[in-house]
Structures are given as structure tokens and as C-alpha cells.
Design a protein around this nucleic acid. Structure first.
Length: 259
DNA sequence: ATGGTAGACCTTCTA
């Protein structure tokens, strides 16, 4: 089973690019982030035409996440528990049905910049809520994948120039500690587990020639429960997607689990 | 030199 995560930076602006990648890569499950539209505006039919079941948690203009699966999605949950009044659409979870069911979540963690504002406090609260929810899910002792844009640069080797990120929310000690706290729960980050390659970037800014200079960051991750990590076979960063026509600034990350 | 680009969309916010 192949599970993809991809921050598409507007599903409607990116539809042809995303569909072309889906035809080529043919993931069984996909977690999308930053769809940037309400549920009614998601191009559902285009993905159903490729054989996917579609669940979305959208929002006007910003954020928005989606789950796509070849088999039906059950037990769908929209929104991360733990903060009443949180309006951001950043979390959707469901169970991919089949002979070996997989619980999967599409995660768009808050960016958190600038760090001297409530945006950073919101980011850290959101990370603590995710930790608490993940701890609950781990009690189920079932295959689980928490995939998405974590907006966290875990290690210096996950960027080109750590000094350039020193004041950025993605590289703050608190952000990185909250990310590691997910590991200490017993979750396995797939890319690091399979091939801990330095500079395996998943995002390159549109600005300042970041792609041409390979000034990227590794911020798109897949965390697996022990029952899923036990089946981990591969984790691939689809770097070529950054060179497509009208690319997203993120590329897909695809995890393969043994059946 | 505080730049640069992209998307949504009403003029500026977010990234």
C-alpha cells in the first residue's frame, strides 16, 4: 500500500499538475494540504474519475485538507480536538477500509511566523494538541499514519543554511522539541527510518531562486504507529514534481507499507 | 541591499 502526502498550494490552481502526478504515481491513499477552498469547491469529480473516494475539510482561501483513497474511507473525523473555537481547517482523519485497514490523517500544521506573535503560540498549542490526540490514537494499537506538512525543520541537515532559519518558527527549539515529542510517544518518522539522507528536501520557496539553488527544507513528514512502522518498506521524496509545469512549492512524499 | 513569488481575492493576508 502506497500512501502519499502533498501540500498542493491550492487544489484548483494546481489541478492539472496534481492529476498528472496521480496518473503517474498512482498512490492508494493521498493526504493533501492547503487545498485553499471550501468543500463544495473541491474538484471531487476529477479524483473520483481516477477511482478515488474523497473526503475534505476545507476553508475559504486558506488551509484546507483532504483524504483520497481507492477503498472507502470510514470513521471520518474533521478537525483536531483540544481547542474550542479553532476555525482553521488543518486536520482530517479516517480509516482506509480493506483487508488490512489503516487509520490515516492529513495534517497541515500551523506555520507560526512571526515568532513574536500569537501565531507562534497557536502553533505550539496545536502541536501539543496533536501530541495528545496521537497518544489517544496509539492506545488503539492499530496501523496509523499521520502524514502532512509539519512546518518543522527537525534537524540542521534538513535545510541548506541553519543560520538563515534561526529566527523562523519552523526551526525554533520549541517547535523541534514538540516534533520530537511525537517520536517519544512511539511514532516512527518514515523518511528518517528508511533512509536518513541529509538534505532530502520536500519544499523549495518560489522566491529568490530557492529551487535552482537547491535551498530547500524537509518539512513534509509521515509518522507511523508501531503496527504500521513494522510494515514500512520505502519512503520516497518525489523531487521531480518541483520541476513540473505550475508546480506546488512542496513535493509529494510517498510511503510504502507491506500488505 | 530586508529583496524575491504565488494564491486567494477586494486590498491585504498568508506562506
Amino acid at each position: 500500500m502506497r500512501i502519499a502526502t502533498w501540500n498542493v498550494n491550492s487544489i484548483n490552481a494546481r489541478l492539472e499538475t496534481v492529476l498528472a502526478w496521480f496518473r503517474e504515481a498512482q498512490p492508494d491513499v493521498a493526504c493533501l494540504q492547503e487545498i485553499k477552498c471550501v468543500d463544495e469547491k473541491f474538484p471531487r469529480e476529477a479524483f473520483e474519475g481516477l477511482g478515488y473516494n474523497v473526503e475534505t475539510f476545507g476553508q475559504k482561501s486558506y488551509n484546507g485538507v483532504a483524504l483520497l483513497s481507492r477503498t472507502p474511507l470510514e470513521d471520518v473525523r474533521q478537525g483536531l480536538p483540544g481547542e474550542d473555537g479553532d476555525e482553521h481547517a488543518r486536520y482530517i482523519e479516517a480509516v482506509v477500509s480493506g483487508p488490512s485497514p489503516l487509520r490515516v490523517a492529513s495534517i497541515y500544521l500551523p506555520n507560526g511566523n512571526p515568532i513574536a506573535t500569537d501565531k507562534f503560540a497557536y502553533k505550539l498549542r496545536w502541536m501539543e494538541r496533536l501530541r495528545a490526540h496521537a497518544a489517544e490514537l496509539l492506545k488503539l494499537e492499530e496501523p496509523l499514519a499521520l502524514a502532512g506538512d509539519y512546518n518543522c525543520i527537525p534537524e540542521p541537515a534538513d535545510c541548506h543554511d541553519p543560520a538563515a532559519w534561526a529566527d523562523d518558527a519552523l526551526f525554533q527549539p520549541e517547535t523541534r522539541a514538540a516534533w520530537r515529542a511525537l517520536q517519544w510517544l512511539g511514532l516512527t518518522e518514515a523518511q528518517t527510518a528508511v533512509s536518513p539522507t541529509p538534505h532530502a528536501y520536500t519544499f523549495w520557496d518560489y522566491q529568490a531562486g530557492a529551487w535552482q539553488r537547491n535551498h530547500g527544507i524537509r518539512i513534509d513528514h509521515v509518522f507511523l504507529s508501531p503496527q504500521a512502522a513494522d510494515r514500512l518498506q520505502a519512503c520516497e521524496v518525489h523531487k521531480a514534481a518541483r520541476a513540473m509545469e505550475k508546480p506546488s512549492d512542496h513535493v509529494p512524499v510517498v510511503v510504502t507499507l507491506r500488505e
